[in-house]
Design a protein around this nucleic acid. Structure first.
Length: 762
DNA sequence: AAAAAAC
C-alpha cells in the first residue's frame, strides 16, 4: 500500500526545514517517480537524452519517499522539475488510454470525488486545527491522503491522480496561507543556488543572451529526448524555421540588467538598436509601413480589423507576428498600450484556423492572464476575429458560473482565455484537457512568472504537450521569466520594441512629495477633474477607504479589488468605462493590461511594489498615443524608495514638494472638490443600471439615476466618448450583447460593456 | 506583507 511506503519513506528521510547543499543536489538529481507500473518507452528515451539527470537512482522503490520530499519542500520540487516533466511525458504516451478510462469510468470517479470533497470540507471546517495537523502530524495526514489517492488512481489514469494530489496539497496550503508563504520564501531564498547553477551551466548570463543560438542551441538536445514523435515534429518545425530567412541577425547590447532585458533584437537597423539601447526616448521601431497582410495575416482577419479602423500594425505586432506565424516561440515586449493582444492573437488564430478542429474538452490553444478583468478584455478583443475565422473561444475565469464554461468545453473550443485558478479547477474536474494544446500564451508573462502565480502556471504548462508553441508577452519582460523560458520554450526569439522603461513620450510624470496630513486633500484634488482617473492603492482596504473618502468629499469614485464579488467588479469597471463613474480606486488588480479609453490621470496613492508595477500602473494612461499624466504621492519616508523606483523605471522626473492647492496639482487638471457627499446608496444606484425592457441592460442608458453630488460631472464627457465613440464601433457588426453567440454572452454579471472592445490591442 | 487566482 502506498500509505505504508510513504510512512516508511518519511521515517527514513524525515522532512527537514533546511537541507544541506549536498542533500539539495541529491534531491535535484534524483528523479521523481510518482507513478506505478513498469517503464515505458519514454522512460528509456529520457535516460538516453539526459543521462546526467536521469541515470541516478532510477529505482521505483524509492519513489514514494522522494515524492513526499518534493511535496513538502518546494525547493526540491522545482529542482526536480525536469524529472517531473519526464513523468508527464510518459503519461502523454498513455493519454488516450487514460481518457478512455475516464470516460468509461466517469461514474466511479465522481463518486470518489464526492468523498474527497467531503474530506476537504472537513479539513477546511476548522482551519486552525488543520494547521496544527500539518505541523505536528504531517505524516498522519499524508497517510490519509494516500488512501484517497489510491481510490482516485483506480478510477483514473496515472496522471490525474497525480494532479489531484498536488491540487489537494495546494488547497490545504491555501488555508494556511501564511505557512505556505513562508515555505515559498524559504524555497525561493534558495533560488539563488539554483540560479547560480543555471548560470554555471549556461555560462554567464550575458554570454547566453548575447548568443542565443549558442546557448539555446543545446535546447534541442534537451528537449528532443521526450519521445520519438516529438523528435519528428520538432524536426519539421525546425525545417519550417529554416525556410524562413531571418532578415536581420539578432543582435545584442548590454544594458543595466535591472532596468531592462539585454536583448532587443527586432528586425531593425543596427543603428536604431543602438539608440534604443541608450536613449529612453527612442523612436518606435518596426514601423516599416507594412500592413497586416504583408505580415502574413489572413485576409479575413485583415478585413475584420479594418472594420474597426485597425490597418496599421503597431511595432510590437510587426515585430512578432511573422515569427509567431512561423510557429516560433516568441518573447514579446512592447510598452503598455502598444498592441500586444493582437500581436499574439492574430498569429494564434491564424495558426489555429490553418488546421484541425477542437475536440470535446480539448482546447487547441490557451491564453493565460493574471486577472479576470484582463481575461474578459482579451476575450472581447479577440472575439470578432475568432468568429470571422471560424473558430470558437471561451473565457474561463473564476467568479463566473461553471455551467457555461463546462458546456462550452463539452462542445469543444479552440481557444481558452483563462485565469489560472479556474482553468486548473476545470482540469481537475475533467472538463478541460490540455493534452492537445498547440499554442500557449502567457500574457503579462513576467507577472505570471512571479511567486504567487508561478506555481499555478507551471502546473498548467506541464500539462501541455512540449512541442507546442509558446508566446510570452509583457511590457516588462525581464529576467524574472528565465525560469519559465528555460523550462518551456524552445529556441525562442525575443522581440522588444522598446527598452522596457518609461519611454512613452506622451506620458508626463509628477512624483509629488507630500506631508501625511495633506494626503487626503491632495488625493481629492487630483481626482476632482474632468475625465477618467485611476487611483492605485496598495491594499483592498485602502481602496475601499480612499474611494469612500473621495465620495464623502463629493468625488464620485468606486473601488475595484479582488475582495469584491465578480458582479460588483464587473459593475464598477463597466461604470468606469462608460463614464458613469469617473474615478476608479483600485488595487493592482487593475494595474496590468486593463484598457480604458481616455484615462487622463493615474494617481498612485501608495508607491508601487517595484518599478515594473510603476510602469504598468502608469500604463493605464497614455495608451495608444494618447496623452496622460502620472501623479505619484510620496511621503517623506518613501522618498528614497520612490526615487529608486523612478530611476529603475527610467522615469526622468524629480520629486516635487506639493501641498493642496499648489500649481503642480492644478496643472494636472485637478481642483478642490466642493460637491456634496455621495452616499453608498447613490453609488450603488449609479453602478447598477436600470434595465430597460428585457435582456441584458445597457448600463449607460440608466445613469439618470444620479444627479447630485459634484456639479459638472454627469457621466458627461468621458462617458459619452467611451460609449458612443470608438468602443461602439469596436463592437461593430455584433450589435451589442444580445446578438452575440450564447457562449459569449453567459458571463457572470451583465454589467460589462464595450469599452475595451475597441482596439484594446494591449 | 499584499494582491491575485477556485469554490
Amino acid at each position: 500500500m502506498p500509505m505504508k511506503q510513504n510512512n516508511s519513506g518519511r521515517s527514513a528521510a524525515p522532512k527537514k526545514a533546511r537541507w544541506s547543499r549536498a542533500q539539495k543536489l541529491e534531491a535535484q538529481r534524483s528523479p521523481v517517480r510518482r507513478s506505478q507500473g513498469g517503464r515505458t518507452r519514454d522512460d528509456r528515451d529520457v535516460s538516453r537524452g539526459r543521462p546526467e539527470r536521469t541515470a541516478v537512482g532510477r529505482d521505483d522503490r524509492r519513489a514514494p519517499e522522494r515524492r513526499d520530499d518534493r511535496r513538502t519542500d518546494e525547493r526540491g520540487r522545482f529542482g526536480n522539475r525536469d524529472d517531473r516533466r519526464t513523468d508527464d511525458r510518459r503519461s502523454y504516451g498513455n493519454r488516450d488510454d487514460r481518457r478512455d478510462d475516464r470516460r468509461s469510468d466517469e461514474r466511479g470517479r465522481f463518486g470518489n470525488r464526492d468523498d474527497r470533497r467531503t474530506d476537504d470540507r472537513r479539513s477546511y471546517g476548522n482551519r486552525d486545527d488543520r494547521r496544527d495537523d500539518r505541523r505536528t502530524d504531517e505524516r498522519g495526514r499524508f497517510g490519509n491522503r494516500d488512501d484517497r489517492r489510491t481510490d482516485d488512481r483506480r478510477s483514473y489514469g496515472n496522471r490525474d491522480d497525480r494532479r489531484d494530489d498536488r491540487r489537494t496539497d495546494e488547497r490545504r496550503s491555501y488555508g494556511n496561507r501564511d505557512d505556505r508563504r513562508s515555505d515559498e520564501r524559504r524555497s525561493f531564498g534558495n533560488r539563488d543556488d539554483r540560479r547560480s547553477d543555471e548560470r554555471r551551466s549556461f555560462g554567464n548570463r550575458d554570454d547566453r543572451r548575447s548568443d542565443e543560438r549558442r546557448s539555446f542551441g543545446n535546447r534541442d538536445d534537451r528537449r528532443s529526448y521526450g519521445n520519438g514523435n516529438r523528435d519528428d515534429r520538432r524536426n519539421n518545425r525546425d525545417e519550417q524555421r529554416a525556410e524562413r530567412s531571418r532578415p536581420v541577425e539578432r543582435d545584442t547590447f548590454n544594458q543595466n540588467e535591472d532596468r531592462a532585458p539585454q536583448v532587443a533584437h527586432t528586425e531593425v537597423p543596427a543603428a536604431k538598436q543602438e539608440s534604443s539601447a541608450n536613449d529612453v526616448k527612442a523612436a518606435p521601431v518596426g514601423l516599416n509601413g507594412k500592413s497586416f497582410d504583408d505580415l502574413g495575416v489572413p485576409t479575413v482577419l485583415c478585413e475584420r480589423l479594418a472594420r474597426d479602423g485597425i490597418t496599421q500594425p503597431f511595432p510590437i505586432q510587426e515585430a512578432t507576428i511573422p515569427d509567431a506565424l512561423a510557429g516560433r516561440d516568441v518573447l514579446g515586449r512592447g510598452r503598455t498600450g502598444s498592441g500586444k493582444t493582437l500581436a499574439f492573437g492574430l498569429p494564434l488564430l491564424t495558426r489555429l484556423a490553418a488546421g484541425g478542429h477542437a475536440r470535446a474538452h480539448q482546447p487547441r490553444a490557451i491564453v493565460l492572464v493574471p486577472t479576470r478583468e484582463l481575461a474578459m478584455q482579451v476575450s472581447d478583443a479577440l472575439q470578432p476575429l475568432v468568429h470571422v475565422i471560424g473558430l470558437r473561444h471561451k473565457l474561463v475565469a473564476g467568479g463566473m458560473p461553471y455551467e457555461p464554461q463546462l458546456s462550452a468545453l463539452e462542445r469543444g473550443v479552440d481557444l481558452l482565455i483563462a485565469t489560472p485558478g479556474r482553468l486548473s479547477d476545470l482540469i481537475e474536474r475533467g472538463a478541460a484537457d490540455l493534452s492537445r494544446v498547440e499554442i500557449a500564451v502567457l500574457d503579462e508573462a513576467d507577472h505570471m512568472a512571479q511567486m504567487g502565480f508561478l506555481e499555478a502556471i507551471t502546473e498548467i504548462l506541464d500539462l501541455i504537450p512540449e512541442n507546442g508553441q509558446r508566446l510570452l508577452f509583457s511590457a516588462t519582460l525581464d529576467r524574472g521569466i528565465d525560469t519559465v523560458v528555460e523550462r518551456y520554450l524552445t529556441d525562442p526569439v525575443e522581440h522588444s520594441t522598446d527598452d522596457g522603461t518609461a519611454s512613452i513620450s506622451t506620458m508626463a510624470h509628477h512624483p509629488l512629495l507630500i506631508e501625511p496630513r495633506d494626503k487626503k486633500a491632495v488625493i481629492a484634488e487630483v481626482t476632482n477633474r474632468e475625465g477618467r482617473t485611476v487611483v492605485f492603492v496598495r491594499t483592498k482596504l485602502g481602496a475601499d477607504r480612499v474611494a469612500s473618502e473621495l465620495r464623502d468629499k463629493g468625488v464620485l469614485a468606486a473601488a475595484l479589488h479582488g475582495g469584491l464579488g465578480q458582479g460588483q467588479r464587473n459593475k464598477v469597471l463597466a461604470a468606469f468605462k462608460d463614464g458613469r463613474v469617473p474615478v476608479l480606486v483600485a488595487t493592482d488588480v487593475a494595474a496590468r493590461g486593463i484598457h480604458v479609453d481616455e484615462v487622463g490621470v493615474v494617481l498612485q496613492v501608495d508607491p508601487p511594489a517595484d518599478h515594473k508595477d510603476y510602469l504598468h500602473r502608469a500604463g493605464r494612461t497614455a495608451r495608444a498615443g494618447e496623452a496622460g499624466t502620472v501623479v505619484s504621492l510620496t511621503l517623506p519616508h518613501q522618498r528614497k524608495m520612490m526615487r529608486r523606483l523612478l530611476d529603475e523605471a527610467g522615469v526622468d522626473a524629480d520629486l516635487v514638494r506639493a501641498r493642496p492647492g499648489d500649481e503642480v496639482i492644478r496643472a494636472t487638471g485637478g481642483s478642490t472638490p466642493e460637491g456634496r457627499a455621495i452616499s453608498e446608496h447613490d453609488l450603488q444606484a449609479i453602478l447598477t443600471p436600470v434595465r430597460k425592457g428585457r435582456g441584458p441592460g445597457r448600463p449607460g442608458g440608466s445613469r439618470g439615476g444620479y444627479s447630485g453630488g459634484r456639479g459638472g460631472y454627469q457621466g458627461g464627457r468621458g462617458g459619452n466618448r467611451g460609449r458612443d465613440g470608438e468602443s461602439r464601433s469596436g463592437r461593430g457588426g455584433y450589435g451589442g450583447r444580445d446578438s452575440r453567440p450564447r457562449q459569449d454572452r453567459d458571463r457572470a454579471g451583465s454589467g460589462r460593456e464595450g469599452g475595451y472592445a475597441r482596439r484594446s490591442q494591449d
